[in-house]
């Protein structure tokens, strides 16, 4: 077994940025195994396949089956298993999303191998593949290797650079269509949020709120700051659990992994579980009434103060700066 297989996720028909990052990672780890990079794409769209080739795929398995257009655990698993049998990769990489985290462990068991979930780095060293991932709520990290092949992993966003698109790159497209068992699952209903809303996973600026916002009203104030900064709103788990904002805003170990240039944490104490999702931000700003809050240990800039006063003042300052440039 050699090379890597990347399981691609689509956002409105286009491969997600995170999938391009996985192709970049796959190129690095595939090289020492002496194999190429394959991608598994759940779409027959040739333009999407071409994008994957331009970003590092040598071969794209394109699944035209309409029953696999949206994630279905059984159907995706069946196609993933087929792609693995054809490509015989040493490693299979998926994004650490709700579909990747559903699929990858099943695939590993199906292949009688093992999986590392939520990885922050994957390295091929002296012929050994090593996976590093947070554990103990993000307080610690572990590095693991496997006794079995192929290794399967889900990888958090922002852990590797995508290779720049090279439209001249050559690659093959292999159609996969049908011949898999019918899914036992039936999706009865799907409620997707407004697809026009900017994705946290790709945002350059995020303003995130926590329990310190003291209610849904606080998120309106946060929205103004996000707008002034040209960013999007996120949250710690507490406001999601309390219904102050939708669960899809949750950032952290069990929420989304984000990697913006600027992360403003407002009324967030800085639990390791939260930092596991945003620790990779280039600049963290913390606004908190408690000078001893853990978040100040991870932040580059801090303000001790009440968000109700600080945030509106910051909105005004940011607008002033922006108007002046």
């Amino acid at each position: 077994m050699s090379g890597a297989l990347v399981i691609v996720e689509l956002v409105q028909g286009r491969p997600a940025m995170a999938s391009f990052e996985l192709l970049g990672l796959a190129r690095d780890v595939a090289a020492p195994t002496g194999g190429g990079v394959c991608a598994l794409l759940f779409s027959a769209d040739r333009a999407a396949a071409a994008l994957l080739i331009a970003r590092g795929a040598d071969r794209v398995f394109a699944v035209g089956d309409p029953l696999a257009a949206d994630y279905n655990s059984d159907t995706w698993l069946a196609y993933a298993e087929r792609a693995v049998r054809e490509a015989a990769p040493a490693v299979v990489l998926a994004s650490h999303t709700t579909s990747g985290a559903d699929l990858a462990p099943r695939l590993a068991f199906r292949l009688e191998s093992a999986v590392a979930t939520g990885c922050v780095s994957v390295a091929a060293e002296g012929g050994v593949l090593r996976f590093t991932r947070p554990c103990y709520g993000g307080n610690a990290r572990e590095t693991v290797s496997f006794r079995t092949l192929p290794a399967v992993a889900t990888v958090r966003g922002g852990c590797h650079d995508a290779v720049p698109a090279d439209p001249a790159r050559q690659g093959g497209i292999v159609a996969l269509n049908g011949g898999v068992p019918a899914s036992r699952l039936r999706v009865v209903e799907r409620r997707k949020e407004n697809p026009q809303r900017a994705r946290l996973e790709d945002a350059r600026v995020i303003v995130a709120g926590g329990r310190g916002l003291n209610g849904p009203e606080g998120f309106r104030v946060l929205g103004e700051l996000a707008e002034a900064l040209g960013g999007v709103v996120g949250a710690s788990r507490v406001p999601c659990d309390l219904g102050w904002c939708p669960p899809s805003l949750q950032i952290g170990l069990t929420g989304k992994t984000v990697h913006p240039d600027l992360y403003v944490a407002v009324g967030i104490s800085g639990a390791s579980h939260h930092l596991a999702g945003c620790g990779g931000a280039r600049n963290i700003v913390a606004i908190n009434t408690d000078p001893d809050a853990a978040i100040f240990r991870d932040a580059r800039f801090g303000i001790v103060g009440d968000f109700q006063k600080v945030v509106p003042a910051l909105v005004a300052e940011v607008r002033k700066l922006r108007a002046g440039c």
Partner: peptide, 21 residues
Amino acid sequence: GIRCVRERVFVPVKDGRCEMM
């Protein structure tokens, strides 16, 4: 019976320097 071998556990280092406004 394990398939997954833990080679290392560690605590990631933080630089811990926050500039207070």
